[in-house]
């Protein structure tokens, strides 16, 4: 046996041995698992759970991390995205966390993943049966902005009393001429529970309707878990004369020329130059690998900086 390989292997296993598998203890996992099953049985209803302190602050995905920890096993391939990107600090650190504590294979490919944890996006590639989407949720209560008391919002859900939400949308139309909300747009799940889809852009709302994949939502600070089972009706609230609509762009992605994906605006300099690129980095990279080219696919920030400053470093 090769001595070097042996040492590397024993280092990896000794590091993993410091942790319980997937970080949480078994009793906590059982508690979360029971909450997840009840969440699936009552689609859109927020199940309270005993959220634990995690090694990241609230707001960094503690709810999503706990849901993933209760699910993940050796057969999984794990993907984690933040605003669609695989390469931002939050996504990279959560992915490394599960690679360490659960010894799980990780990927940036939406197609290869079995569990996709996400903050603020659902990937562009349609999800398939058997995949699990875990969404991190800051505020699980869609009515919280309208009613601050938990006892009241709980009663409103219990008696399906959602008139206030419609009044809020109506006021939005009278103030702005349209329903102005861009993210966290409220939905009705299986025509019963009003649900916050987490702060995904409303562009992603239609992807939840009859999704072949299971959608799980975890709110760590607010201690709630909820779910949308596969093939479940998810309707974005609207009015007959003001139907629900998603964001549209006049541009295509400057890197991969996609007309269908959700675009982020990137400011390039202080003289007003900007580009629009796919928020879903895996989708964009896959398209470029397939030979799609956008108007700025050869653009390099370093070159632009150099031509602007004449090669002098600022």
């Amino acid at each position: 046996m090769n001595a070097a390989t042996n040492t590397a292997a024993s280092n990896a296993s000794s590091e993993a041995a410091y942790y319980t598998h997937a970080y949480l203890d078994e009793q906590t996992k059982r508690m979360i698992r029971r909450a997840i099953l009840k969440a699936i049985a009552i689609p859109g209803y927020q199940v309270p759970f005993g959220s634990r302190e995690m090694p990241v602050p609230y707001g960094w995905g503690t709810g999503g991390i706990q849901v993933t920890a209760a699910l993940i096993g050796p057969r999984d391939v794990y993907k984690c995205i933040d605003q669609g990107a695989d390469d931002t600090t939050n996504a990279v650190s959560i992915r490394k966390f599960f690679a360490t504590v659960a010894d799980v294979e990780t990927t940036e490919s939406t197609a290869d993943a079995t569990i996709i944890q996400s903050r603020h996006r659902i990937p562009e590639l349609p999800l398939r049966e058997g995949q699990i989407m875990v969404l991190q949720v800051p505020q699980p209560e869609p009515l919280r902005g309208l009613e601050s008391r938990e006892t009241e919002t709980r009663a409103m859900h219990a008696y399906e009393e959602y008139g206030l939400q419609y009044v809020s949308l109506y006021e939005n139309i009278s103030a702005f001429g349209r329903i102005a909300g861009g993210a966290g747009y409220p939905v009705l799940v299986d025509e019963r529970y009003l649900m916050s889809p987490s702060p995904i852009p409303k562009f992603d709302n239609p992807k939840m309707h009859l999704s072949p994949a299971l959608l799980l939502f975890g709110a760590g600070r607010e201690k709630r878990i909820y779910a949308v089972p596969p093939y479940t009706r998810v309707r974005s609230l609207d009015f007959e004369d003001y139907p629900f609509e998603v964001q549209k762009w006049t541009q295509a992605c400057a890197l991969c020329a996609s007309h269908e994906s959700y675009l982020d605006e990137v400011i390039l300099d202080d003289s007003g130059n900007r580009m629009f690129i796919c928020s879903d980095t895996d989708h964009c990279a896959t398209r470029r690998a397939d030979g799609h080219h956008g108007s700025m696919s050869d653009f390099s920030l370093e070159d632009a900086e150099q031509s602007r400053t004449g090669g002098e470093r600022p």
């Binding site: 598998h21 997937a22 996992k29 698992r33 997840i36 699936i40 699910l71 096993g73 779910a227 089972p229």
Partner: peptide
């Protein structure tokens, strides 16, 4: 740890389908 994770995923699949 590993056996209950394996079985839970079966129960999760069962309840969601």
């Amino acid at each position: 740890t590993s056996e209950s994770q394996f079985i839970f995923r079966k129960l999760l699949d069962a309840m969601s389908q």
